[in-house]
Design a protein around this nucleic acid. Structure first.
Lengths: 188, 188
DNA sequence: ATATAAAAACAGACAAGTCTGTACGAAAAT
DNA sequence: ATTTTCGTACAGACTTGTCTGTTTTTATAT
């Protein structure tokens, strides 16, 4: 009964909060066990190391992102509406969490020599977004060549990542709103 | 004779390398003094704390960035050529340093509760870039309203920051090349 | 339902090492 | 002669991870 244990869930809840607020390195094992209300021995029964916690966290967080985003898109038409929802979701998260930037880029930037497996999870996540963009761009009324689709997707990815960075510098949603408007124009 | 001391310069050279390669937190005082070939007492004679080293590093690095970028623009016409040089310089740096992203965003993302003074230095730097963009956009032959200038600058900032993030994920210059092309098109 | 066996979570001490920053007197440079 | 740099020992607090033994929970058998 290790898989559906409550220890794992409590640890994940805690690190989801702490890793985002403080960063991975600034969060110690002792703080994790204290705030999860879990014994140290129990934690190490579930995760062999702090690195393993990070790995599990990234897997959970990317999955959570996708499911919440898909929820966010419910009721929205495919095409431009879904693409714009990407910016709406980013804004929603940024406001909720105090403009500290993208969870995943944060990890990559904090640890330039990141574990290969961890980077893999993040790349897969970003690939999911890119694919979603391309599919939805292809659905738009104005017909575009594959090359044009590719280029527009690239541009929206840049806008998306760029406004995330910018909003964390300014600690405001201004750049996200702005990026959304620009994207809207590009999608016409 | 503290200002033109060699200790300060050697420490700055070392941390410029180490902070970028490993990150600030992962770089210890002991590693700094060892690789700078400086005694610990000497280091603390020049910098009251590790935080102070970070502050001096950010000031030096932003100043260095600007002077090197201006060197990079020498011989280039004002307007679109200068704006595109921003991407060329980013590519130059990214290739040279192994695609670990923007120096300054790295610091912001690594330490979400960064010192106010340190954040100030970074914001000033990013403001410098934005101002440079607006000035050069205004010089372009196709006349634009102030609002259009503002919006185009915003877009190029996003492209610039976005491709920096993207290139560090992919560990390649592809996204920088791509962003440059898109910028070129937008500037027509 | 109740007794028993097995699994899981517990609290906390401890090891072994890291970290930043201070203090000392000696050596070197100006 | 005065300032700077040096080497190094040290304090004190922190780090991750291990280990021990106890208590609680869960599953099974009667």
């Amino acid at each position: 009964m290790k898989a559906n244990s409550k220890v794992r869930a409590r640890v994940m809840d805690t690190v989801t909060r702490l890793f985002y607020e403080q960063g991975f390195q600034a969060t110690g094992i002792n703080q994790i066990i204290e705030e999860s209300e879990v014994a140290k021995a129990s934690l190490y029964e579930h995760f062999p190391s702090k690195e393993a916690i990070l790995q599990a966290y990234l897997e959970d967080a990317t999955a959570q992102w996708r499911s919440e985003f898909e929820e966010f898109c419910k009721g929205k038409a495919a095409g431009d509406k879904t693409i714009l929802a990407l910016f709406d979701y980013r804004k929603f998260l940024a406001v909720k969490r105090g403009f500290k930037g993208c969870t995943f880029i944060r990890v990559v930037y904090e640890m330039p020599n990141l574990d290969k497996a961890a980077l893999e999870v993040i790349l897969r996540h970003k690939e999911y977004i890119r694919k979603m963009l391309k599919e939805n761009i292809a659905l738009l009324p104005s017909r575009r060549s594959p090359k044009e689709v590719e280029e527009l997707a690239e541009m929206i990815v840049s806008l998306y990542e760029g406004c995330g960075v910018q909003s964390s510098l300014e600690r405001s949603a201004r750049s996200i709103d702005s990026a959304r408007k620009i994207a809207q124009k590009l999608l016409e």
